[in-house]
Design a protein around this nucleic acid. Structure first.
Length: 550
RNA sequence: GCGCCCAUAGCUCAGCUGGAUAGAGCAACGGACUUCUAAUCCGUAGGUCGCAGGUUCGAAUCCUGCUGGGCGUGCCA
């Protein structure tokens, strides 16, 4: 059993014996003391209980200690400090043992069953297949991928889904735009629609088509050609997006096509449901959803005056399938431009009878690209957009992912390209990777000196301050993961890994691993391996490589 | 106008859902390589937590107001 688990359970038992109501797990939250001298793990439980039990926190703390059975394997002592903190001082025994436990668990260390196998879904990126992926998509891709990875590690069954808008107006425009480029390449006049897509990628595609299939499509009727080119362009863009994502080490579990909603007329069923429950009405020739009854600021159109379903209606039907597919928690990661869309979608989900807290929208804020401190101005109109591919080619996948994860997603992000490229101490990515590589080097050095590294060895000689500091950090890992998953805050993981790297580098600096003392050498090798394991597990969740040398 | 997000060291950001003397990285300054990688480590300096009230044993954290920024607010997708 992990020390944290032991402490939590023991506090619970002590509370019960002392006559307090301890069923609320929240009360048992453990903290990391802010300062040295306050022990290794702290519990504010006495202060939490003070209000409920109407007793002085210190009194409660004393009562808890009185009923607390100290197992010397885990604890040296408990102290009451400050306003009523319980400070726990971990015993060397359990710390030494946890190094071996980590090695035994290996790749699985850090995982937990916190989520109880609940089926949840993360839908993200979902960029229109009308152009290459941009920088915000890159950010969403990193965040969504890591959130899902964290959720899976924390015991949820999380799915990564990409919603493909492969139907509707913008696809028609895409086809028309490609058709225009095709004809222009063949020297004929056909303008790109005003609201069409003017980026150069369609010129490239037009050239590709001409090279591969010639000019046979020029003979077609324009509307026929546009329709055909819609599908061609769609396939092309989808493949291109998939390739970009693959390069980014992101694999979606499911690609959900909007066209299936339309084909199955799922949106009409929604319409029907709303009609039957009196949640919609007709006005000015359109059909409206009474979203204002569910917290939206006004009602929204489902069917336009021209009889077309709105994107909103299709989107409701799409989201309904998520619940139909068995997901109990639905997380959408949207771009900042969809801010105003949240209330109505949330209203729709409530209208369809889904719990308010089962549907979540997280806005991934914009990314400002900087080069040497200067913001790079991007304009969609002029086609001056930095694509995800360009960014990855320039700074690399590892750095890009790290930079995107290392900040709360709800905040705009200044991404300094020059910094991300720098292979120096200014760049936090390499700091963590370096610790991993450094350990590989130590292990190699040990082998070169004739030390065969065993799977397990006694760690009883680990007692130096820096050694213990590393172990104490290592045992935090499972909680970092479950909390990062619980609060959807992946940056907790990068922070943790950075701290672990710091503590390891410090240990490395102060102590030699491979020495004449064979038993101590083996013990420290175990510590190194356990650290490397945790670094590797953490980096894997982030989708960042763990290099053996740098 | 209304709604959401944000304001913490020179810069970029943490701060574990109300707790102990507010932390880290970078930048600045001063030190440490005959060593398992110096892509590292140690030290110094740096703060009215935007402002003003309120809630209580206790507030960077919760509430209200204000100031200053970002975004959103279509029978578009």
């Amino acid at each position: 059993m992990r020390a944290q688990e032991y402490i939590r359970q023991s506090i619970k038992k002590a509370l019960e014996k002392a006559g307090f109501d301890a069923h609320d797990e929240k009360l048992l939250n453990l903290e990391k003391p802010k300062q040295e001298g306050f022990g290794d793990i702290a519990s504010p439980v006495a202060m939490n209980l003070a209000k409920i039990a109407r007793q002085a926190p210190r009194k409660i703390a004393e009562s808890i200690i009185e009923h607390f059975e100290i197992d010397p394997f885990y604890l040296d002592k408990i102290e009451i400090a400050g306003p009523g903190f319980l400070n726990f001082f971990l015993a060397a025994n359990s710390l030494q043992q946890s190094v071996l436990d980590i090695l035994a668990e290996a790749d699985a260390y850090g995982s937990s069953d916190w989520g109880n196998g609940e089926k949840i879904q993360f839908e993200f990126v979902s960029a229109n297949p009308t152009g290459p992926l941009n920088i915000v998509s890159a950010r969403a891709a990193a965040v969504g991928d890591v959130l899902a990875a964290l959720a899976n590690a924390a015991g949820y069954k999380a799915q990564r889904e990409f919603y493909v808008n492969d139907a509707g107006r913008q696809i028609k425009l895409l086809g028309a735009s490609l058709s225009a480029r095709y004809m222009t390449e063949l020297g004929k006049s056909e303008p790109v629609p005003e609201e069409g897509y003017h980026g150069e990628y369609l010129i490239d595609l037009a050239k590709e088509i001409i090279a591969a299939e010639g000019k046979k499509y020029a003979a077609l009727d324009i509307s026929e050609r546009q329709k055909l080119f819609s599908q061609k362009a769609l396939q092309y863009m989808l493949n291109r997006q998939k390739n970009s994502l693959e390069k980014y080490r992101l694999k979606f579990d499911n690609w959900f096509h909007e066209s299936t909603i339309r084909a199955e007329k799922a949106h009409l069923k929604i319409l029907d449901t709303f009609k039957k429950s009196n949640l919609s009405y007709e006005q000015d020739g359109a059909v409206w959803f009474k979203s204002s009854e569910f917290g939206d600021e006004k009602d929204r159109v489902l069917i336009t005056g021209e009889g077309e379903p709105t994107y909103f209606l299709i989107d409701i039907a799409y989201h309904e399938t998520k619940y139909a597919r068995g997901f109990t928690q639905v997380h959408d990661l949207w771009g900042p431009d969809h801010h105003g869309y949240i209330a109505r979608m949330s209203a729709a989900m409530q209208a369809l009878g889904h719990p308010v807290d089962s549907f979540h929208v997280w806005i991934i804020q914009q990314v400002n690209l900087l080069r040497a401190g200067e913001i790079i101005k991007m304009s969609k109109r002029a086609g001056k957009i930095i694509e995800m591919d360009e960014l990855l080619d320039e700074v690399g996948v590892d750095a890009a992912r790290y930079f995107f994860i290392d900040r709360r997603m709800s905040q705009p992000l200044d991404f300094d390209i020059e910094l991300a490229k720098k292979k120096s101490d200014e760049n936090p990515v390499y700091y963590v990777q370096y610790a991993h590589a450094r350990i590989s080097n130590i292990l190699r050095h040990a082998r070169e000196n004739g030390i065969e590294i065993p799977l397990s060895a006694s760690t009883a000689l680990l007692k130096e301050k820096q050694e213990m500091a590393v172990v104490k950090k290592l045992i935090d890992f499972p909680e970092v993961i479950s909390k990062a998953a619980q609060f959807l805050e992946p940056h907790r993981l990068t922070t943790f890994l950075h701290e672990l790297a710091t503590i390891f580098h410090r240990f490395y600096h102060d102590h030699r691993v491979v020495t004449e003392n064979r038993e101590l050498t083996l013990a420290r090798l175990m510590l190194c391996k356990a650290t490397q394991q945790v670094l590797a597990n953490g980096l894997k969740l982030l989708g960042i490589t763990a290099p053996k040398n740098m």
